[in-house]
Amino acid sequence: DVIHTHHPFLLGEVGAHFARSLGLPLVYTFHTQLEKYSHYVPLPQDLVRKAARDYVAAYARKCDCIICPSPSIRGLLDEYGVTCRVEVLQNAIDLKAYREADGTTVRRELNLGPDRVLCIYTGRMGIEKNLHFLLESFQKVHLQHPEAALLLVGDGPLLEELRQKARDLGLADHVLLPGRVPYSRIPSYYAAADLFVMTSTTEVKPLAVLEGMATGLPVVAVDACGTGDTVTPGHDGLLCECDPEAYTAILQTAVSDAALRRRLGQAARQTAENYSLETYTHKLVDLYRELGAVHTGRF
């Protein structure tokens, strides 16, 4: 009754073809700022970024509705010249898995005592995630707070480079990069931590932020798309511009103040309740029904 695609390439084009041939509404969720990943294409970057924008804009013209996973990305679609219906339907997660997570075993496996303040990032180890920036800020914080530790969970092309960077910064014993871990264990890794960190400026609505908040972790992040419309500074996390000194300052504040972390973390857990899969599913099904009724007269 509805064809829903999640990227414009390959299967996205297949979905668009069948939507057109079957006379069905086409829905596309705009998950990724593709132009921010242009560095993976070894061609002139201005050309690649323009091509990415033009391709998304052309794909959007085939759609009956585009779903924005975050309010702040809506303006980017306007810049692309998108004229079809756009609905903001924010990403959601299975809250239960994170509410009930226990990090005791993970801390023991990582040999982290109760006195260590553990900062966690989960996600792709890629240049677009701005992780060199995070390591450099963490080094400055660690000089003042040797009890701090940083855990970067995930795989990607920068993994070995980041491990070397940690060694070069004298942080080999304090920055942990275990690589990919089973997805079923991710909630336990969050639960082992004291705060969630993110310095990426290329997100749309990062699930990792929601997962960390659902586990009761305060978010310490660069204010960008996806964090700025999820985190309320001083309430459930701390945000700043993408500036090394500014980020070091808020990270140091969070690491040094256990009472602040507890207060922000409790509020973060409450914020995460707004992003349940149940709420998301009901809204999505209602949208499908509406589009189906308008497009075909069914439902």
Rank of each mutant, 00 (worst) to 15 (best):
H17S: 12
H17Y: 15
H17T: 14
F18Y: 15
A19N: 01
S21F: 07
L22G: 04
L22P: 01
G23E: 02
L24W: 12
L24M: 14
P25C: 00
H31C: 07
H31Y: 09
T32L: 05
T32C: 09
Q33I: 13
Q33C: 08
Q33G: 07
Q33P: 10
L34W: 14
E35Y: 04
K36F: 05
Y37R: 11
Y37T: 08
S38A: 15
S38P: 02
H39Y: 15
H39P: 06
Y40R: 14
V41G: 01
V41A: 03
L43W: 03
L43D: 04
L43F: 11
D46E: 14
V48Y: 01
R49E: 09
R49L: 00
R49P: 07
R49W: 03
A51H: 10
A52I: 05
A52L: 14
R53N: 07
Y55N: 06
Y55E: 07
Y55A: 13
V56F: 09
A57F: 05
A57I: 04
A60Y: 03
A60Q: 06
K62Q: 15
K62V: 05
C63R: 00
D64M: 07
D64T: 01
C65P: 07
I66H: 00
P71R: 12
P71A: 14
P71L: 12
S72M: 13
S72I: 05
I73S: 03
R74V: 10
G75A: 12
G75Q: 12
L76A: 08
L76Q: 11
L76S: 06
L76P: 00
L77S: 05
D78P: 01
D78T: 10
E79K: 14
E79T: 13
E79G: 04
Y80R: 06
Y80K: 08
G81L: 03
G81C: 05
G81P: 11
V82D: 10
T83N: 11
T83G: 11
C84T: 15
R85W: 05
R85N: 06
E87G: 05
E87L: 12
L89V: 10
L89E: 04
N91Y: 07
N91M: 10
A92H: 08
A92C: 08
I93W: 02
I93V: 12
D94N: 13
D94A: 15
L95A: 01
K96N: 14
A97M: 14
Y98G: 00
Y98K: 00
Y98T: 01
R99P: 04
R99T: 04
E100N: 12
E100Q: 13
E100R: 13
D102W: 11
T104F: 04
T104M: 00
R107V: 04
R108C: 12
R108W: 03
N111K: 13
N111P: 06
D115V: 02
V117S: 03
I120L: 13
I120D: 02
I120E: 00
Y121L: 10
G123T: 04
G123H: 03
G126M: 09
G126E: 13
I127R: 14
